[in-house]
């Protein structure tokens, strides 16, 4: 029984990992794009800040439902495609938008926290804006944002469980299915071990990154 459960949960966890990885892959660059839009383009900054307000101001679970069912209701057709894959893509879209907005705020704060004197010192040394960003500002920003980013990333590991509201078969779904089929609840509790091991691994990774940048202040 233990083996059956473990295998079943591992399959569910693969889905969790897939959602986690693809969400990061798309939301980090999108977040950077949103942040640079907010910082540099006045005209863009208001609609983007409106979007950030909506996304941060409503539950992710609600956003999942709106993203999945919304197009069907308002456009009259399901744009996400049929079956499991369609639901997965819809949940990925909702996660990417949600996390991009949180990341955008972290990037914005990180970039704006760099003292103006760093830019001016670069300028009087004849560096271009691009050189200043790449060679002076970027690493300082990365160092500043690693702790808040790691927070978000570890939250994302657990947030993926929300995808089950639109029937994405992630690990919690797998655990729950044993309640219905076998009448046992321990597989659901057992899922916690998977989350713990994975977030432990991420914690170690982020600690290493912090350690590598600890040579300057």
């Amino acid at each position: 029984m233990f083996e059956t459960v473990t295998l079943s949960l591992a399959r569910g966890f693969m889905m969790t990992l897939r959602l986690f990885t693809l969400t990061l892959l798309f939301s980090l660059p999108l977040g950077l794009l949103i942040a640079s839009g907010v910082i540099t383009k006045k005209a863009l900054s208001y609609p983007l800040r409106f979007l950030i307000w909506i996304i941060r101001g409503t539950p992710l679970m609600l956003q999942l439902l709106v993203v999945y069912y919304g197009p069907g209701i308002f456009l009259g057709r399901n744009i996400w495609g049929m079956g499991d894959e369609g639901r997965f893509i819809a949940s990925l879209a909702a996660f990417v938008i949600n996390y991009a907005c949180y990341f955008a705020e972290i990037f914005r704060g990180g970039i704006q926290s760099i003292p103006v004197g760093q830019y001016e010192a670069g300028r009087v040394l004849g560096l271009s804006d691009k050189q200043i960003f790449r060679n002076i500002v970027l690493l300082q920003v990365i160092k500043k944002i690693i702790p808040p980013i790691s927070n978000e990333v570890i939250t994302l590991v657990k947030d993926t469980s929300l995808a089950r509201v639109i029937a994405v078969y992630e690990i919690i779904w797998s655990g729950q299915s044993f309640i219905k089929s076998q009448g046992i609840i321990w597989p659901l509790f057992y899922t916690g071990i998977f989350y713990l091991l994975f977030s432990g691994l991420l914690t170690i990774l982020f600690d290493r990154m912090e350690e590598r940048l600890s040579y300057f202040v």
């Binding site: 003292p115 004197g117 760093q118 001016e120 010192a121 300028r123 009087v124 004849g126 560096l127 271009s128 002076i136 690493l139 300082q140 160092k143 040579y215 300057f216 202040v217």
Partner: peptide
């Protein structure tokens, strides 16, 4: 870009040093 060219004639030392920490 043009400012960068004429800036080359001058060096500036700041009150707050503004060294690059990394």
């Amino acid at each position: 870009k043009q400012l960068g060219l004429i800036r080359k004639h001058f060096g500036l030392v700041f009150q707050q040093f503004n060294l690059f920490p990394q």
